[in-house]
Write a protein that binds this DNA or RNA. Sequence first.
DNA 1: AACACCGCCTGAGCGC
DNA 2: TGCGCTCAGGCGGTGT
Length: 296
Amino acid sequence: MPEGPEVERVRRSVEPALVGARVVGARLLRRDVLTAPGDPPGGWSRGRGAAGPARPVPRAAMLLGQSIVALERRGKQLAIVADSGRVLLVHLGMTGRLLVTPAGEPERSMPHTHARWVVDRGDGAAVLRFIDPRRFGGLWALVDRAALEARWRGLGPDALEVSGRALAGALAGSRRPVKAALLDQGVVAGVGNIYADEALFAAGLHPARPSASIDRRGVWRLAAAIRRVTARAVAAGGSTIRDYTDGQGTPGRAQERHRVYGRGGRACVRCGVALECGIVAQRTTVWCPACQGSAW
DNA sequence: AACACCGCCTGAGCGC
DNA sequence: TGCGCTCAGGCGGTGT
């Protein structure tokens, strides 16, 4: 389940093969995975019959014939920027993967491959695949950088660098549970269910605490915890729970460091009390009833 | 306006 | 062994 740290690992792992490379082949195997300019607002219909190339995709939208100049990330979104100015925005959703393999390697059949590119850096071609069994992820074709910036304007600061001041501004006046705020990408970009629980534990805050009830010191502690927890996850290669690997197929080890996520009922690593498990903000949530105070 | 909640989608894991 | 159920969860759309 890729959150910000996992997407950052993917970005780093595919960057060497992609930046400076020219896209010499592009195929979209499922039309509904891509939202291109002119598609219905809210994206292509995901209903029956949406599969397949029912409507031709402008090949430029898939960056065919263009050179990749940068791979940029904000939160869970990964932008492939071409020299034409066009951008292909990748969201991995729950089970999405980007995989790069040398073109010479024997073609293994990879189920749920929805898009496939051949890129050439001059020193040999490589194949890039977008694979996503559950299809919560997708691709968005943007015509220029301005469109990317407009889109990213809706995101909060990235989790790796969120400041206490920015978080305080976003939590002020909100009565919703602080965990719900953390999962809102407009508040902090890149935090998902795993790192929300981990950061709240690290900051000693109950996930159901109304956002506005947390004092200044607590908010600063929380911002620092978000930065620390996500930075450590990046350093550990990301959390591999089920499907996640980086762009080379390498799993991460950050899951071995989780102190609350997936540990409901087990002993708190800090105080030994049994961790509680419940639903907060419609998500499975684990917290320590002793270390994380009360919801009020 | 702010927030709650649903539905999308497939595979893993479980109980019977 | 095998079937069918539940669960996982990001996010956009709709409802309150």
